[in-house]
């Protein structure tokens, strides 16, 4: 029922476009609200959904995602809720991965998390603060449960580390386009394209580019050279701006998804 995300990127490539990957934290604004939001993103053109696991100390996130994660935690979201969210979104047929800092997985039990993620229909895990050097337990559990291992590469990664990291990945490679934390930026980074070129030297895996994309034009720009365009803060921002008006929030989210989905189709 789950399976790797890789075919999604390959299908998009066959259509002459990049895949659109959308992120939202589970439990924001609350658990049912986040499921509705993610379903809306799927209906309007997201190929892969990243379900964020809210964490108390998110060192890779800028203010927008921090605020959403904090709201979710204050609302009492639990790790089990995140897995339920995965299940609900995977039921739409879209591929779903979880993006999480490492400590909650370790606390839940790495093997148990992998088993429960797989049975919820999740495809794998993006691990922003776990590098392959430290990931032997996760790699074993992921392989056992047929899950994608999506590690990050950065503009500062050495060629040696790019080779080592991509060799440990399954599904796709997450390339961080900027040196910095998550959050929308005015223009796309000049560091992203050279990074993608360097990654292509060492792997055939699809490459998703994230950090900073918020508009259709930016998505088109990144989609020229990347296999996937990853968008997070811009989606969160739409929900934050709508406040308690959930209906407006979902409409705004749908409009942004359509704009970005159009962007990745304009790319090539």
């Amino acid at each position: 029922m789950s399976g790797s995300t890789r075919p999604v990127f390959e299908a998009a490539r066959a259509e002459g476009r990049a895949a659109l990957v959308g992120y939202l934290p589970a439990g924001f604004p609350d658990v049912p609200g986040s499921v509705d939001a993610m379903r809306t993103m799927v209906e309007n053109g997201c190929d892969v959904i990243e379900v964020g696991l809210p964490y108390s100390d998110p060192v890779m996130d800028g203010p927008t995602i921090q605020r959403a994660a904090q709201t979710a935690l204050e609302g009492g979201v639990r790790t089990a809720d995140v897995l339920r969210t995965v299940e609900a979104v995977a039921a739409t047929g879209a591929k779903v991965v979880v993006m999480t800092y490492w400590n909650p997985v370790e606390r839940y039990g790495v093997e148990r998390f992998a088993a429960d993620l797989a049975s919820a229909g999740g495809s794998g895990l993006i691990t922003p603060d776990l590098v392959p050097d430290e990931a032997s337990e996760w790699v074993a559990a992921a392989d056992k449960h047929d899950l994608d291992k999506i590690f990050l590469v950065a503009p500062s990664s050495t060629d040696e580390r790019l080779a080592m990291t991509t060799a440990a990945c399954r599904g796709f490679v997450y390339a961080t386009a900027v040196m910095g934390v998550t959050g929308a930026r005015e223009s796309t980074s000049s560091l992203a394209e050279p990074l993608v070129a360097r990654v292509r030297e060492v792997t055939d895996l699809p490459i998703g580019v994230g950090l900073g994309v918020s508009t259709g034009d930016q998505a088109a720009d990144v989609g020229r050279y990347a296999d996937g365009v990853i968008v997070g803060s811009a989606f969160v921002r739409r929900l934050l701006d709508a406040g308690d008006d959930r209906r407006t929030g979902l409409e705004s989210l749908a409009a942004l998804t359509r704009e970005l989905a159009d962007g990745v189709r304009r790319a090539r």
């Binding site: 922003p128 590098v131 500062s156």
Partner: peptide, 22 residues
């Protein structure tokens, strides 16, 4: 060499900082 004291320590950090830590 990898910064471990038995099972403790290490580098549980984003890849973006690995080059700087090295």
């Amino acid at each position: 060499e990898s910064g471990h004291f038995g099972r403790f320590g290490g580098r549980m950090m984003p890849e973006a900082l690995m080059a700087a830590l090295d």
